[in-house]
Amino acid sequence: MTNPFNTQQGAEIGERLNPLVAGSGATDRSRAPRTVQIADGRVLPTRRRRSFPRWFADTGWRHLIGVVMLVFASFPLLYVLSASLNPTGTLVGSNELFRVIDFSNYIELFQRPQQPYAAWFLNSLVIGLVTAAGTVFLGALAAYAFSRLRFTGRRVGLLTLLLVQMFPQLLGVVAIFLLMSGIGEIFPQVGLGTQSGLILVYLGGALGVNTYLMYGFFNTIPVSIDEAAKLDGASHAQIFFGIVLRLVAPILAVVGLLSFIGTFSEFVIASIMLTDPQTQTLAVGLFQFVSQETSRNWAIFSAGAVLAAIPVMALFLYLQKYIIGGLTAGSVK
């Protein structure tokens, strides 16, 4: 693919017109500084130093919004951070934030034999990642079928996926307990008290609203790609695993992230399923610090919650390059 333009202005237009050339913010950094050679041989940097108003009109206002949102999103959480740094901290007792800075809560978090925070952390990571991977896989299979194949019951099936999850499950806990104790009698490895059993329950929700997100994205991938591959003799499985999945990488990353966050913070089912402190997840374990009105420990709970937010942020940071750069990266390579 050659760039038809050779002036700077042309290059910019070309970039904008063709995402293959433009790449994206996430891939920008890995590239060598872009330069454009103009007719007389001089080399100019593509990004000229622009005047402030122009910078502001183009990018600056975005930073302004970014800063506003930064305050909006993180401000209430400063209370949590402040409480976590104060040994006798309460969540909202005072507006004097960060009166005391003391990391003893973070240390104590890892020194309670009855509340093995490190184990919870690891459990949550493993359960979250496995569930997210399973959800993406099952969901992508289904989304592909709904998007590419025509069969009777397709519309009803799509609608059912949505409606099933709308049912207010007041008694979901009772039903899941009955179900899992029944399954546990046949397969103790996935019964009550096991993390694998919990993952299976979570995978029950793999088809659902996330499938729609993928379905919508699949629909934007031209069928002609499938057809071309078919002409080349690829089987449907090869097309799906080898080509289509790579093209929809951004949405797989988004669904994986959503599923991870959902699993990471899920409390109700996990508290029914996991009873041994060593097998419990963060959501279940942490809540024990504050569940009793008379022995609430907001300080340690806050410290635990602050640390628990890190994996979510780290995963998002990692996945951003797939989410943002996924489309182009997938088709270029």
Binding site: V164, Q165, F167, L171, V201, G204
Partner: peptide, 13 residues
Amino acid sequence: FLAVFQIFVVGYS
């Protein structure tokens, strides 16, 4: 998975 873990729960409710 949907049938085992979701439909059953809805049915029970």
